[in-house]
Design a binder for these strands. Structure first.
Length: 574
RNA sequence: CGGGGUGUAGCGCAGCCUGGUAGCGCAACUGCUUUGGGAGCAGUGGGUCGGGAGUUCGAAUCUCUCCACCCCGACCA
């Protein structure tokens, strides 16, 4: 590709509303453009990368025996009513009506459609196992789309659905997909982890997420430093502390704490540690009332654990501020378990703190030296917090380490949830109708692109892993339009690259070298060759890998051999 | 949906408080010079100042009202 004929749309300045680095670089490199909240076009450069991701996925899915098909975005409501999800799904499901007033939605996922296909097409256990997949546009009307393509409303997903006659078969299909995912993520060249996870709204039991590790990731993953345990933090049990509660050493006192509303304010204001403070969160109860959840100040609430507790509304909802002030008589920021007129559930580790600081249920006042059992009832305890760095691993052995990740893949065992509700049965060997066991397997294709950048960039721009790069090699002539020698050498190299099937970008724009270099670095092409009058005279060319510290000068007559070595598989002689 | 904020040229911004009909840098276009790390000079084009209403002789500026977008608020690929 000649740069002069390509739409290189790089931006020198960073658009202000791009928050994270991948979003900024995607805009600056001219990969994507935004039309509305969470709605993006992929420009030619971005699309090349997207296609690389898709192609790797496609090859590995095919290799794993899955069959590609294509399902519609527009989906009739009837199918969703059959599965029961028309009512279950929240406003994330974009619903609409056609001109005949028929209800429909834009598909956020395709269990209903694929199950409908299956029940029409497949009748016998002999046709199983079966795995259908597609790479297709999804729409989820997110409350708050952000981070560009990382969390957009319209996005591309690879979704696969397996069908088996029994549980063992489902497990086998799941294991095959697990391996296929490992192959896929290996080929992306990204640092990732497979972790066990909660299965969320899709339903089902066993489930595993694939996370690309990046500090900016929205998810926290807990690893065991010994052994191979890895799980999304939301699923990891926080073991009750082995230590006894520390004894009370002083009488409880009320102190004035004007303007101190957060644990941080309180800890700084009173000169105590966050561990010594109680964080009291008020959430909605199942019966419409309120429940208090009490945590140690340095811990965070785990919503999944909390919403499973008896009496707590599921999904978890924090109480409205108004309801708190009218029910409790004090504002958020001054609530505490002592003298609280509500059912309270206390985290195990909060229950062993003695002489703690907590809200006095009176605006701008807190208690110090409060103690469980003395100043209030013995606590009802439960595990309601997220684990933190250094917590004991599962079974109490080893320590947990927390890393941040971007969820780019998720595999589930669905069981018979959809096959039963939608009456998709096949005949087994006894001629009896059986609802097949399903699995579903997703990869956020567009998100993979953003995650790859999030993990691989520097001050100059993107550093693509070789398998995802939009071009494999950049040829940067200096004075292409002025020097006949440079033009000759460049065109010759370009033709040789094309003959080898290399994806090469020849920057033949009449620009100054600095501009060319900056652009090539910004868009992240892995290899760069510079040809100049000076070099040709000295019978040399210059090479620099995208993440190399400096360039090297090499003999010009070895140029083609050198290029062949960059991508040996593609350029093998013969 | 709640809280906070922002809308002025493709991008980044100033002007607004103290009304007088729009400016800077980058980008784009033309010409000349320049050519190994985002060049210089000269010139050109581009904005109903988010929309609407109001106040006023006069509104980017003041008021009201819509709209869009961004950030924070536990949600997924």
């Amino acid at each position: 590709m000649r740069a002069s004929r390509f739409h290189l749309a790089t931006l020198k300045e960073t658009p202000v509303d791009a928050e994270i680095i991948s979003h900024q670089l995607m805009l600056r490199a001219g990969m994507i453009r935004r039309h509305a909240a969470g709605i993006y076009s992929w420009l030619p450069l971005g699309l090349r990368i997207l296609r690389k991701v898709e192609q790797i996925i496609r090859e590995e899915m095919d290799r794993a025996g899955a069959l590609e098909l294509l399902m519609p975005s527009f989906q009739p409501a009837e199918l969703w009513q059959e599965s029961g999800r028309w009512d279950q799904f929240g406003p994330e499901l974009l619903r609409l009506r056609d001109r005949h007033d028929r209800d429909a939605c834009i598909g956020p996922t395709h269990e209903e459609i694929v199950t409908d296909i299956f029940r029409r097409e497949v009748n016998s256990y002999r046709q199983l196992p079966l795995n259908f997949y597609q790479i297709q546009t999804k729409f989820r009307d997110e409350i708050r789309p952000r981070f560009g393509v990382m969390r957009s409303r319209e996005f591309i997903m690879k979704d696969a659905y397996s069908f088996d006659i029994d549980k063992d078969g489902m497990q086998r299909s799941y294991d095959i997909m697990d391996q296929a995912y490992i192959n896929i993520f290996d080929r992306f060249g990204l640092d990732y982890r497979a972790v066990s996870a909660d299965s969320g709204a899709i339903g089902g039991s066993t489930s595993q997420e694939f996370h690309v590790l990046a500090d900016s990731g929205e998810d926290a993953i807990a690893f065991s430093e010994q052994g191979d345990f890895a799980a999304n933090i939301e699923t990891v049990e926080a073991l009750p502390p082995a230590t006894e509660r520390s004894a009370a050493s002083a009488e409880m006192q009320t102190v004035d704490t004007p303007g101190m509303y957060t644990i941080e304010d309180l800890a700084n204001g009173l000169g105590v540690s966050a561990q010594q403070c109680m964080k009291t969160l008020i959430v909605e109860a199942e019966d419409g009332g309120l429940v208090a959840l009490v945590l140690r100040g340095d811990h965070e609430l785990n919503a999944l654990k909390a919403e499973r507790l008896d009496g707590v509304a599921s999904p978890l909802r924090l109480a409205q501020r108004e309801q708190i002030t009218t029910t409790l008589g004090s504002d958020i920021g001054s609530i505490g378990p002592v003298g609280l007129n509500l059912k309270a559930i206390v985290d195990h580790s909060a229950a062993v703190v003695g002489d703690f600081v907590c809200g006095a249920n009176q605006d701008d006042k807190h208690f110090i030296n409060a103690n469980w059992g003395r100043d209030c009832d013995e606590p009802v305890t439960a595990d309601i917090r997220n684990v933190i760095d250094g917590d004991p691993g599962p079974g109490g052995t080893g320590q947990l380490k927390i890393l941040r990740g971007i969820e780019v893949g998720h595999i589930f065992q669905l069981g018979q949830k959809y096959s039963e509700s939608m009456k998709a049965a096949v005949l087994d060997e006894n001629g009896k109708g059986v609802a097949p066991f399903m699995g579903c397997y997703g990869i956020g294709v567009t998100r993979v692109v953003a995650a790859a950048i999030e993990q691989n960039h520097d001050e100059q721009g993107i550093i693509w892993p070789a398998t995802l790069a939009p071009f494999q090699l950049a040829i940067c002539p200096i004075n292409y339009h002025k020097s006949e020698a440079v033009k000759q050498a460049t065109d010759d190299l370009y033709q040789q690259c094309l003959a080898r099937g290399l994806e090469v970008l020849l920057d033949d724009r009449a620009l100054r070298p600095g501009v060319i270099f900056s652009d090539m670095e910004l868009i992240g092409i892995p290899h760069r060759i510079v040809l100049s009058e000076r070099g040709i005279t000295a019978q040399q060319f210059e090479y620099k890998g995208r993440s190399d510290d400096s360039a090297q000068e090499l003999p010009l007559d070895e140029l083609i051999a050198f290029v062949d070595k960059l991508y040996p598989d593609q350029c093998a002689p013969g």
